[in-house]
Amino acid sequence: MKKAAGLSGRQADGARPRRGEPALSQPGSADLSTRDRVTQLLLERGATTAVQLGSALGLSPAAIRRHLDAMLADGDVVAREQVVRGSRGRGRPAKVFVLTEAARLRCGTHHYDNIATAALRWIARSGGVDAVEAFAADQVSTLEERCRAAMEDAGDDPLARAEALAGALTAEGYAANASTIASGGQLCQHHCPVAHVAAEFPQLCEAETEVISRLVGTHVQRLATIAHGDGVCTTHIPAQPHKSPAGSPSGNTVTTVRTDR
């Protein structure tokens, strides 16, 4: 599996100073420029507002917007309106910022995407869809073995196993995290080493989803994928129904919610 590589900024402070203004100073980390730290946060969190970014980095609204303006100009991020569920206050929704595909490519190593895509096209022509599915299953089998070994002490609870799986996937370069939501839990992968290939061959995503289901120990539902243009690969893990003393379900319903947009 490909690992996430180090990020490289365009200048020491990570943003272009405006004409007649001094360069922004670099707060915090001595290893990453501010711009690299913004990129890393967007990679880890997906769509994020300027206020959230500034708060996480300890920057003023003016400073973080200066960095974002430079990244917008260079095509590293795009701005979208934040989707708000339910009732909201007056005024337009806040803007969220998302890494572009070009910026994502610089966050990892994708040197063999074209070769991999060509190989899968050849497999599809020679053996059809079944051959592509078999190839995809074979490719994720070793990942499944490594993750299963890393989850030996996770227990049987699906949400606890999802947390352990997130740690194992992060070690593989997926920048993953797990969280609890109203309808159960979700596993988010903020980086996909094969996004370009999976955009044409969704069998790779499907095989990975089956692996997640087996490792977590319950049915899961893939809600979003980076390969199809979403900011994060999001997998929903339904809440387990509570049992009554007689062993019958309590009647609780499970609903699926989309949290990546």
Rank of each mutant, 00 (worst) to 15 (best):
R121S: 10
A164K: 05
V83W: 04
A150H: 01
T117K: 11
A162M: 08
A119R: 14
D74N: 06
R85C: 07
A164Q: 00
A94F: 08
D113N: 10
A103Y: 11
L68R: 00
E133K: 10
N114E: 15
F97C: 02
H110R: 06
L159C: 05
A136P: 01
G128I: 05
A79N: 04
R148F: 08
L105S: 05
G91P: 03
R125C: 10
A154H: 04
V140P: 00
T100A: 04
K95M: 08
E81V: 14
A94N: 11
G75Y: 11
A70R: 02
P93G: 04
L165H: 08
E152C: 09
F135D: 05
D113A: 07
S141K: 10
V98K: 00
M151Y: 08
R106K: 14
A162Q: 03
D113M: 00
R92W: 10
Q82K: 13
A136C: 05
V83G: 03
A131W: 03
T170R: 02
F135I: 01
D74C: 06
S141R: 10
G128D: 06
H67I: 10
G108W: 08
D153E: 14
G108C: 00
V83L: 14
A119F: 13
A137P: 00
M151I: 09
E133Y: 02
P158R: 03
R106F: 05
L99I: 01
E101F: 12
D138R: 14
T170F: 01
V78T: 13
R125M: 10
F135L: 11
G89R: 15
R146I: 11
A70L: 08
R88S: 15
L120P: 01
D157A: 12
T117Y: 11
A118D: 13
R92Q: 14
A94D: 09
D130L: 03
Y112I: 12
D74P: 02
T142H: 15
G128A: 02
V132A: 06
V77D: 02
R121W: 06
E81D: 15
D76A: 10
G89A: 13
V77Q: 00
